[in-house]
């Protein structure tokens, strides 16, 4: 089957690109360390400055880039497949906005200054709260439309509360910190962040990855999928909680990073024959590659300025998405 062969080639190329970009991410930074030195320092027993930089600064950053990119790509593909809507993206369920609100409250109240994990834990709390509100609104028999509308409402409310926190912030530094955090970044993250986010992401990935065949069946509509033995309630549960766990954790450690989850599935869909099940792994790898690239670019373009990752993905992503829409408008009609 040439179709399957082509799919394998696409996956292999994406995987290879992700590996190369991951290694590249390890070797880019203000401390000019050679490629060989930096990689060997990772695996050596030495405790010199190079080893410290590699293990404490660059490794967590590269790992988070990989995992958050994969999360955004995978959840975007899963949500588009589940909702049968090419406009779905990871922030749709209100998880990103609520995680941001959690983080903002932590900064605003000073909770984030008490201990290093205060901010990501508060953000995770926000994500959990959002997903339970959305799921409770939709109920067991609720349809996808209820989920979308609840997500929109939760996002709007979380956005409003974030604005309120900014508005009332007594301290301009706190306001600035909130603004910067919300732009999304992987700078100065530690392995603690990795250990905090990884369990949630792994659980979320497992839930989303198990949806492949159900999403294929949903290509023909929910009634037809149900008649083919797809349990729609189970699919809803896995899609909502899988997205919440992985995207909630991603937002908690890196802030909101837009457009990756929306654009990556679009780019890859034609390459995998548009099959939702094949789009899942392809989009996860593609998301990882894109986010690693973006995180390398922010370090290369403006080394001294701390350009935020979320700003770059939005600046590049939005025009690119416009171009995609322009190119495919005939098919969209």
């Amino acid at each position: 089957m040439t179709d399957t062969a082509r799919y394998r080639v696409v996956l292999a190329i994406l995987a290879a690109a992700t590996v190369v970009l991951f290694l590249l991410s390890l070797t880019v930074g203000p401390a000019a360390i050679g490629l060989g030195d930096s990689l060997s320092a990772l695996f050596s027993d030495k405790r010199d400055a190079i080893a410290l930089i590699m293990r404490e600064i660059r490794l967590p950053r590269a790992i988070l880039g990989l995992m958050i990119g994969a999360t955004l790509g995978l959840s975007g593909a899963a949500l588009q497949g589940w909702l049968r809507n090419p406009l779905a993206e990871p922030g749709l369920l209100g998880v990103s906005a609520s995680a941001s609100l959690g983080a903002v409250i932590a900064i605003y109240t000073g909770f984030s200054a008490l201990f290093p994990l205060g901010l990501p834990l508060a953000a995770l709390g926000g994500a959990v709260l959002a997903v339970f509100v959305v799921q409770a609104m939709a109920g067991l028999r609720g349809g996808t439309l209820t989920i979308i509308l609840s997500g929109v409402a939760v996002s709007a409310f979380a956005g409003a509360m974030t604005s309120l926190a900014l508005n009332l912030s007594p301290n301009p530094f706190a306001a600035l910190e909130i603004m910067f955090w919300m732009l999304g970044s992987l700078t100065d993250r530690s392995m603690t962040h990795v250990w905090l986010a990884a369990p949630f992401m792994l659980v979320g990935w497992a839930m989303l990855a198990s949806l492949g065949r159900a999403l294929d069946a949903l290509t023909l509509g929910s009634d037809t999928a149900a008649s083919m033995g797809v349990n729609l309630r189970r699919v809803q549960f896995l899609a909502v909680f899988g997205t919440a766990a992985s995207v909630g954790a991603a937002t908690a450690v890196a802030g909101a990073i837009g457009f990756v989850g929306l654009v990556v599935p679009h780019i890859l869909r034609p390459l995998v024959g548009a099959r939702p099940s094949r789009l899942l792994p392809a989009s996860a790898l593609g998301g990882a590659a894109v986010l690693l690239t973006a995180d390398i670019l922010v370090r290369v373009i403006a080394p001294g300025r701390d350009l935020k990752l979320g700003v770059l993905t939005a600046i590049v992503g939005a025009p690119f998405f416009l171009w995609l829409v322009y190119r495919t408008r005939r098919q969209l009609l």
Binding site: T219, S227, G273, A274, R275, Q331
Partner: peptide, 16 residues
Amino acid sequence: RIAYLAQERDIAWPVS
């Protein structure tokens, strides 16, 4: 045991 052909003929993605 039962195959079903829905009235709805929407195909969400450009699959073959």
